[in-house]
């Protein structure tokens, strides 16, 4: 399929799914995983990288950076480019190129070790941008919560070329 036809299909599929909320479990936050995340992100503060620290805190970017919870995904859930087939709405099965456009993260409450995280997300905007074939800009709203209520809200943008 020509790229322009694929982009038009992405746009059509995306518009059809606008406003539909879906849920995904990210599992239970483990202090050791959050500490590993903090180390990988270059943090050195003991309260972020040492799960045994008296004031240990889950790195605030940890939960919103998780693409999947444990135990991960089946191979069939991945595109040939390694992205999850359902990560960017409307792109499943198409050879389009995907890039992150940016995020806005708003913290309501801190995630804690032991929290079971539920993600709700919905596609809220579809825009065709640029000249020529251009690209499709998708805006996704995400809400991360636990039994304590909403923890974080995220607005995320994806570029589909």
């Amino acid at each position: 399929m020509f790229r322009n036809a694929e982009l038009e299909l992405v746009e059509e599929r995306a518009r059809a799914s606008l406003g539909a909320w879906e849920r995904r479990s990210l599992g239970v936050v483990r202090a050791e995983d959050a500490a590993e995340f903090a180390r990988a992100a270059g943090e050195r503060a003991p309260r972020l990288v040492d799960p045994g620290h008296a004031d240990f805190a889950v790195h605030p970017m940890y939960v919103v950076s998780l693409l999947r919870g444990a135990p991960g995904a089946e191979a069939s859930e991945l595109r040939p480019d390694g992205m999850y087939r359902d990560e960017v709405p409307g792109t499943d099965g198409l050879g389009v190129r995907l890039m992150a456009g940016g995020q806005a993260v708003r913290w309501i409450a801190a995630a804690r070790a032991g929290d079971r995280i539920e993600l709700r997300r919905a596609l809220t905007a579809v825009e065709r941008k640029g000249s020529g074939e251009g690209f499709v800009l998708l805006t996704v709203e995400k809400v991360y919560g636990s039994v304590r209520g909403t923890l974080v809200e995220v607005t995320e943008r994806f570029i589909v070329r």
Partner: peptide, 15 residues
């Protein structure tokens, strides 16, 4: 760093 960060966030995007 990218391998570690990708592993802990389960990000397998080949780019």
């Amino acid at each position: 760093t990218l391998l570690r960060f990708g592993a802990v966030t389960r990000n397998a995007h080949r780019i």
